[in-house]
Simulated scan of single mutants.
Amino acid sequence: MNRIVAIRAASQITRLPASVSRQFAASALAAKYKKQHYVDPDPQIGDYPNLPQIKSEERPQLGWWDRQNRRNFGEPIHEQDEVLNMRSPSLYRSPGWKQVSRLWAGVVITIGTVYYLIGKTRAERPYMRAYYPNGLKEELGGVPTRTMADAIKEASA
């Protein structure tokens, strides 16, 4: 009996307009998508359907009665709908380690190249550095520079 109904339904689908058959194909895709996820048994929800923890953002975009929330008419609402609906925070998919390491290598190579080019193309200083053979002793009036050891000797004497 079920097989006859399925054959009749399939023959009616071929007679439907293209937009309706496209919608049916999208809803069939959505039904297939729902079957792929494992649902952990929860004894506390009683006879309410135990739905998979799938965010609405992960569902296919087309084939839903309510396209904004990606739900069909009469579909049971998940018990944690406020966490899984379209208004919840978006999913963030982080890039893989290969991509991250390539990006970091690019940053390091770029910064190194810039420093190398600046070092090679930097102009020479337009002045000569001052050279003091005896240090700054004579230039500061002949007073020797004081060190910490000299200050301790003076204080202890």
Rank of each mutant, 00 (worst) to 15 (best):
Y132G: 02
A26V: 02
W65G: 15
R3V: 06
G141I: 07
T113V: 06
Q68L: 08
K120H: 05
A155L: 15
K32R: 15
P17R: 08
E75F: 13
S56L: 04
K35H: 06
R122V: 03
T147G: 12
L117S: 01
L84F: 03
Y132L: 13
H37T: 15
N134M: 12
H78V: 04
S21T: 15
K120S: 05
Y115V: 12
S56V: 00
A149H: 11
A25Q: 15
M148S: 09
F73S: 14
M148F: 05
L117E: 02
D66K: 12
R8H: 09
W104E: 10
A30N: 15
L140I: 01
P144G: 01
D40C: 03
T113S: 09
K137I: 04
R67T: 08
T147L: 08
K153D: 13
T14H: 08
A155S: 14
P52R: 07
P41S: 05
E154R: 14
E82F: 11
A30P: 01
S94E: 07
D47R: 05
L117Q: 01
I77D: 04
M128K: 02
W104S: 05
V108M: 11
Q12A: 15
W64R: 00
G46A: 03
K55P: 01
G106P: 00
L62N: 06
G141H: 05
I109T: 02
D66A: 11
N85F: 15
N50Q: 05
N72K: 11
N50M: 02
P76E: 03
Y48W: 14
K35S: 09
S88G: 12
A151M: 14
A157L: 10
M86D: 02
D81T: 08
A25D: 14
I4L: 13
D81V: 10
N69T: 10
P144K: 03
Y116R: 01
E124R: 15
V39H: 09
S94G: 07
A105Q: 07
Q53N: 14
R59I: 01
K32N: 13
V108P: 01
A105S: 08
K35I: 01
H78A: 09
A130K: 10
T147Q: 09
R15F: 04
G141A: 06
A155K: 12
R3F: 02
L16Q: 12
G135E: 09
I152L: 14
S56F: 04
T147V: 12
R129S: 07
A123H: 09
S27H: 09
V107N: 03
E57Y: 10
I111E: 02
G119T: 03
S156M: 05
G135D: 08
Q68I: 06
I118N: 07
P95K: 09
T113R: 02
E139C: 03
